[in-house]
Simulated scan of single mutants.
Amino acid sequence: MDKIESYWNQFKKEHEIQASSYEAYSFGLGVEVEDELASLVQKGIKTATTSTFDLYEEGEHVPQAGDYNVILDGSGNPVCVTKTLLTEVVPFNQIMAEHAYHEGEGDRSYQYWHDVHVDFFSREYAEAGLVFTENVPCLCEVFEVVK
């Protein structure tokens, strides 16, 4: 059994959770950023995230309220479990400063969040052979740390 599955099974046992499914992932790209963002989640500072809705592939799980997630650091080690509380599809240019603040990154300002996400999403879209615009639909997710 791998370390992620073991971590998940221990969590289920400790919290008497019957759920059998979970997603395991890290935030960001690159070990340093992934470590930093995992730490922010673990500390309860980062309680939200945003992904580009159009880039979910057919059949890929789209986050929804009630989901459990094993958050990984940059080395693929589990650091905590979160539970998704809310998801909402919103055009990028209509995401509120409050959501940006809850993402917990940088100085937590809307401008910081905006600049980082334009850069990140532009690269994601380019890799998919598409062009990012500020009206693309985004999945805004709010979660809480449960372990």
Score class of each variant (00 low, 15 high):
Thr84Arg: 01
Glu57Val: 12
Thr133Lys: 15
Tyr101Gln: 08
Leu55Lys: 05
Asp2Leu: 03
Phe143Asp: 10
Asn9Ile: 11
Glu60His: 06
Lys83Phe: 12
Asp54Gln: 11
Phe27Asp: 05
Pro137Met: 10
Lys43Cys: 09
Thr52Cys: 12
Ile71Glu: 03
Ser20Thr: 14
Gln64Arg: 12
Tyr25Ile: 08
Glu103Ser: 03
Ile45Gln: 15
Trp8His: 04
Glu141Val: 11
Ala97Trp: 02
Gln10Lys: 14
Val81Tyr: 11
Glu36Tyr: 09
Gly66Pro: 14
Val62Gly: 02
Pro63Ile: 00
Tyr56Phe: 14
Leu29Ile: 15
Val131Ser: 03
Val118Ala: 00
Phe53Lys: 01
Val90Thr: 04
Gly129His: 06
Leu139Trp: 00
Asp119Val: 06
Gly129Cys: 12
Gln64Trp: 03
Ser21Asp: 09
Tyr25Trp: 15
Leu55Cys: 05
Ser20Tyr: 05
Ala38Thr: 08
Gln94Gly: 00
His61Met: 07
Leu86Phe: 12
Glu5Gly: 07
Phe27Arg: 02
Ser109Phe: 05
Phe132Trp: 07
Phe121Glu: 01
Phe53Cys: 04
Glu23Thr: 14
Val70Phe: 04
Asp73Cys: 11
Lys12His: 00
His15Gln: 04
Met1His: 09
Lys147His: 13
Glu144Ile: 09
Gly76Asn: 01
Glu134Arg: 11
Val118Cys: 09
Val70Arg: 02
Glu34Asn: 15
Ala24Arg: 12
Lys3Pro: 12
Thr87Val: 14
Ser109Ile: 07
Val145Pro: 08
Ala24Thr: 07
His99Phe: 08
Glu16Asp: 13
Tyr22Pro: 13
Tyr125His: 04
Asp107Leu: 00
Val146Tyr: 00
Ser20Met: 05
Ser6Met: 06
Trp113Met: 06
Thr47Ser: 07
Gln10Tyr: 04
Lys43Val: 02
Phe120Ile: 05
His15Arg: 10
Pro78Ala: 09
His61Asn: 09
Gln111Val: 12
Met96Pro: 14
Lys83His: 15
Thr133Asn: 14
Gly74Thr: 07
Ser6Ala: 07
Ser20Pro: 00
Phe11Glu: 01
Asp54Met: 11
Ala126Phe: 06
Asp54Gly: 10
Ile4Thr: 10
Tyr112Trp: 12
Glu141Gly: 01
Gln64Asp: 07
Val33Lys: 10
His117Glu: 01
His117Met: 01
Ile45Asn: 06
Leu139Arg: 06
Glu34Ile: 15
Ile4Met: 03
Thr82Ser: 11
Glu32Gln: 15
Glu103Pro: 09
Val79Gly: 03
Val142Glu: 13
Gln42Glu: 12
Glu98Ala: 11
Glu124Asn: 10
Glu98Gly: 05
Leu55Phe: 09
Val31Gly: 02
